[in-house]
Amino acid sequence: MLRRMGNSAHINLVKLCVGAQQVEDLTRWQAQRMASGFYDQPVHVTRMRPKKEAELLAGGSLYWVFKGVILARQRVVRLDEVRGEDGVLRCGIVLDPDIIRTEPAPRRAFQGWRYLTPEDAPRDLPASRGFEEELPETLARALSDIGLR
């Protein structure tokens, strides 16, 4: 079941943040891409276009998985068509530049992206906790597993 926001329901995506060890890696990578002038907002290009586009654009976010744990999200702004150098049409998921840290939530490895209902999404961390030193991964997972973090 989807949580209603105003008159529309929304859904989220969850995606592995390949090549990034921590949230700062994602922040740095997106800043470099925007500084190059190629994009004015962060864009994640993926092969498939989400079929639940309307629900995603009704307030959904892209939740990022780092080393098996969801740690951050970015609001999805729009979906663009992107044609690669190989001529193949892909989907550009345009994201809000603000990266919001979330409570750690373990996630098994998968390919591509998956839908994530608002009820199953980890809660946002308060902004004041965004730059605290991270707990060791095993402790963060254990706390998350028992609902304490």
Rank of each mutant, 00 (worst) to 15 (best):
A127S: 04
D145C: 08
R141A: 11
V18D: 15
P126E: 04
G130A: 11
S8M: 13
A140E: 12
D86E: 01
S61Q: 10
V23T: 03
D145N: 09
L148T: 09
R107I: 11
W113R: 14
V65P: 05
L62P: 04
A127Y: 04
P126N: 01
L57G: 07
Y115Q: 08
S36F: 02
Q111N: 13
E85L: 04
P118C: 05
G147V: 00
R75V: 04
Q41W: 08
R28G: 02
I100C: 01
G68L: 03
D120L: 12
T117F: 14
Y63W: 09
R33A: 01
A142G: 13
I11F: 13
A142W: 02
I146W: 01
A54L: 13
A127H: 02
P42D: 07
A121C: 05
L116R: 08
T117S: 13
L139W: 07
F110G: 03
V77F: 05
A72E: 03
W29R: 02
R33V: 00
P122H: 12
S128R: 10
L125V: 01
A58F: 07
E81V: 11
Q74K: 04
V43F: 02
N7I: 05
A140D: 13
F38D: 12
G60S: 05
A109P: 10
A20R: 00
R75K: 08
E132K: 07
F110V: 06
C17W: 06
E134S: 11
C91V: 11
G112F: 12
L125T: 03
G37M: 02
P106Q: 06
W29I: 04
R101K: 07
R78Y: 06
G92L: 06
Q21T: 05
V18I: 09
I146L: 05
R90Q: 10
A35F: 03
R101D: 05
A35H: 00
E81Y: 12
D98F: 03
R33C: 02
V43N: 03
R28W: 03
E103T: 08
P122Y: 12
P50L: 08
V18Q: 07
A140K: 04
R101V: 02
T102Y: 08
F66S: 08
Q74V: 03
F131Q: 09
R78N: 06
P97Q: 03
Q22D: 09
A9W: 13
D86M: 00
T117V: 10
L71W: 11
G87N: 01
